[in-house]
């Protein structure tokens, strides 16, 4: 029989009021994937759980598996991303990263790579770098981890190099012959940027200096791809 009480490191993806004084939170855990958990009494001023169940928190949680939801019985905050809630410019970015993870990652399989990606992204977002470029890197890496990586290396139809027409529906690039009028034509620099962002460590986004055209095109590519495959209109509006 599975252990009903367990401890795990987790990131808070969502936190909503529940009933009179509780909170229903979505946790992305290293060992058990995404789980919904109730923090009883967390909205009361004297609650010991309150500070650890707010959005943008990385903590260590003690949970007890109930019939429908896990119940949070203890928590220890490891890192609070306070600036996200105190800086109106930063808030939508933090919210976007958490929301996208919540929508793309499902199931209770261990997902250390997704946890690490979100945590690193939140940390980088808090520093000095091109926030939009970091978000593009995050989008591409997360879709890859979720098993929906868009294809940028060679034509999806014939495998020829230099393909530069992106089809959101097919999730990849085509050469002019195979595209058949479908898709958006991209600058080769935009494709190179996408490949670099998927493959390179996240922190390298700090060192890249793409031109406005490449940034604009990549933003269009990821937006149309996410809209088509995941119906994420509400999230895309945050970007």
């Amino acid at each position: 029989m599975a252990e009903r009480s367990y401890k795990t490191d987790a990131l808070v993806l969502n936190s909503r009021p529940l009933g009179e004084a509780d909170r229903l939170i979505t946790l992305l855990t290293w060992e058990k994937g995404k789980i919904a958990a109730v923090a009883r009494g967390a909205r009361k001023t004297k609650s010991r759980l309150a500070a650890g169940v707010d959005l943008f928190t990385y903590g260590h949680y003690l949970l007890h598996q109930g019939r429908s939801f896990a119940i949070i019985t203890g928590q220890e905050v490891k890192e609070h991303f306070i600036r996200f809630r105190e800086d109106p410019d930063l808030y939508p970015y933090g919210l976007f990263l958490a929301g996208l993870t919540d929508r793309l990652i499902a199931g209770t399989e261990p997902c250390p790579a997704s946890c690490r990606l979100l945590l690193d992204s939140w940390r980088l977002l808090d520093g000095e770098l091109d926030r939009d470029l970091l978000c593009r890197a995050f989008e591409l890496k997360l879709t890859d981890l979720a098993g929906h990586r868009p294809h940028f290396e060679g034509c999806l139809g014939c495998g020829a190099g230099g393909a530069h027409i992106f089809s959101p529906r097919q999730g990849g690039v085509f050469c002019r012959q195979c595209a058949g009028g479908d898709g958006m034509e991209l600058d080769p620099g935009s494709i190179a940027l996408a490949v670099r962002l998927i493959g390179a460590p996240l922190a390298q986004a700090r060192m890249l200096r793409p031109g406005p055209r490449q940034k604009r095109e990549l933003a269009q590519v990821t937006a149309t791809f996410l809209r088509y495959h995941f119906d994420l209109d509400d999230l895309i509006k945050l970007r």
Binding site: S15, L55, F84, R85, E86, P88, Y91
Partner: peptide
């Protein structure tokens, strides 16, 4: 004093 409340406060201050 939660995420939404703090973000709203920051917006109003600005």
């Amino acid at each position: 004093p939660n995420v939404e409340g703090d973000a709203t406060a920051a917006y109003i201050a600005r």
